[in-house]
Amino acid sequence: MKSIWIKALGLGLATCTAFAAAQDAYPSRAVRLVVGFPPGGGGDGVARIMGEHMARTLKQPVIVDNRPGAGTTLAPGFVATAPADGYTLLLAPDSVFGADKAMYQPNVKYDETSFTPISKWVSTFFVMAANKNFGVKNLAELKAKAAATNGPILVGSTQGPYPAMIFENFNRLAGFKLEMVPYKGGAPAVMAAVGGEVPLTFSVPSSIMPMAKDGKLVAIATTSPKRSTLADGVPTLADEGLKGFDVGYWFGLAAPAGLPADVAQKLFDASARALADPEVQNKLHALGYELAPSKSLAEFRTQAVEEGTVLRKTVERLGIKGN
């Protein structure tokens, strides 16, 4: 009987050891990276570039799962309720850490407590550009044009927290008014400016700069706090006299709340290796993004919550509501 008990104990220990080994073997199957944007856009491109490299580090496929809709809130809503096992991840815009909840109440149930922040990946900003025939090359000429027309200047733009912040800050600092003409996406807004439907637009560098190089638009200024190689030769709005102007956004990697620390570290390390690869850097830069890697899990956790809180309070103050 004693022999049987010892054998059973040994079998139990072996089973526990095998289970622990299986737990340590993350990932043992494909990882899903959920994206709240349709295929072909900037966010989708970031996910695919990063996912391809991370798959080599993790030695498992990283499958991009596009779930656009509901103002990009479908994807984070799905991830927030997924198992916290590292197999369902989110391409996380900064808005998921508080601003979405403020904008889309009562439909959005997630907030900054719903996710495990893993790493910041990239950031970008917006470029103000004018129709080539509008006769404006800088902010001073735009101000003169506004004075001559004795009314607001129309600007084609998407809706959301970032355009709202751009218009609020600009109209507060510039001494004349811009009026938003809403479009369903950044590309239609840019093409409206190219075609003369509106005289101005704000969009990301990857949408504006090719048009500016081809002479179809005139890049006036950026919303970034300092000049960037993403918009070579283009001054910032701060350079043009709007001191302190700074509106941009970032993407990072997140998982459902409660992700085990060792799994989070593996994903952080895979992110860091991808962002250190010159080929990945070149691809992300060509897509219109600057690298913004986190130094640690703890750093990104603090940053995500702090910046998310600031963005949420701005959304609440401006009364921004999603569609």
Rank of each mutant, 00 (worst) to 15 (best):
K109H: 14
D111K: 02
T113H: 13
S114W: 08
S114D: 07
P117G: 12
I118V: 10
I118H: 00
K120T: 00
K120E: 01
W121N: 02
V122T: 02
S123G: 07
T124D: 05
T124Q: 02
F125M: 02
F125Y: 08
F126R: 01
V127D: 07
A130V: 07
K132W: 11
N133C: 06
N133E: 14
N138T: 11
L139T: 09
E141L: 08
E141R: 11
L142P: 13
K143N: 02
A144W: 04
K145R: 14
A148M: 10
A148V: 09
A148H: 09
T149P: 01
N150I: 03
P152M: 09
L154Y: 11
L154H: 09
V155F: 05
V155W: 03
G156W: 07
S157H: 13
T158G: 14
T158E: 11
G160K: 03
Y162A: 07
P163T: 01
P163Q: 06
M165R: 06
F167G: 04
F167Q: 07
E168S: 15
N169K: 14
N169F: 12
N169I: 06
F170E: 11
N171R: 07
R172P: 09
R172Q: 14
L173R: 15
L173M: 15
A174W: 03
A174C: 07
G175R: 06
G175D: 12
G175E: 12
F176I: 06
K177F: 08
E179V: 11
E179D: 15
M180L: 15
V181L: 14
P182L: 11
P182K: 10
G185T: 00
G185P: 00
G185H: 06
G186W: 04
A192V: 02
A192E: 02
A193S: 13
A193Q: 13
A193C: 15
G195N: 15
G195W: 12
G196Y: 12
P199H: 02
T201F: 01
T201M: 05
S203E: 15
S203I: 04
S203G: 01
V204P: 00
V204K: 04
P205M: 00
P205Q: 08
S207N: 13
I208W: 01
M209A: 10
M211A: 13
A212S: 12
A212D: 03
K213I: 12
D214M: 00
D214G: 01
G215N: 05
G215H: 06
G215I: 03
K216V: 03
L217C: 13
A219N: 10
T223I: 06
T223S: 10
S224D: 14
K226N: 11
K226L: 07
R227T: 15
S228H: 10
S228P: 05
T229W: 00
T229E: 10
T229D: 13
T229S: 13
